[in-house]
Amino acid sequence: MINPLGDFIVGSGGIFTISVVLILFFIGVATFIFRRTLLHMLMGVELMLNAVNLSLIYFSRLHQNLDGQILSLMIFVVAACEVAVGIAIIVKLYKRTGTIGVETYTEERG
């Protein structure tokens, strides 16, 4: 199979990809910060992880090196574990307090 992207990879493709990564990452951060539900926070984390994965895959393609893809797989695994445990915790919290809004879990300080 012929290499589908060619020169595009290195020039404007790079700008585009990394822009997508950055934007996705910051959207993930914004979701994490601004949404008031525990599950939204979890989804924000997932979005951040995905953005990083894209970056890894892009650079692995750029340098023709499989290491990036392997690492990306590891990140998958980690994300899966983390979601599992996070959901378990959220469920427990919901059972305890009946809500998954973040205000309940904020201790006023400062």
Binding site: V29, F32, I33, F34, M41, V102, Y105, T106, E107, E108, R109, G110
Partner: peptide, 16 residues
């Protein structure tokens, strides 16, 4: 000490 809001999302923002 006003920075210590106890709000974890704020902390997340500080980290990032």
């Amino acid at each position: 000490s006003k920075l210590q809001t106890g709000n974890i999302q704020a902390y997340g923002f500080y980290m990032i």
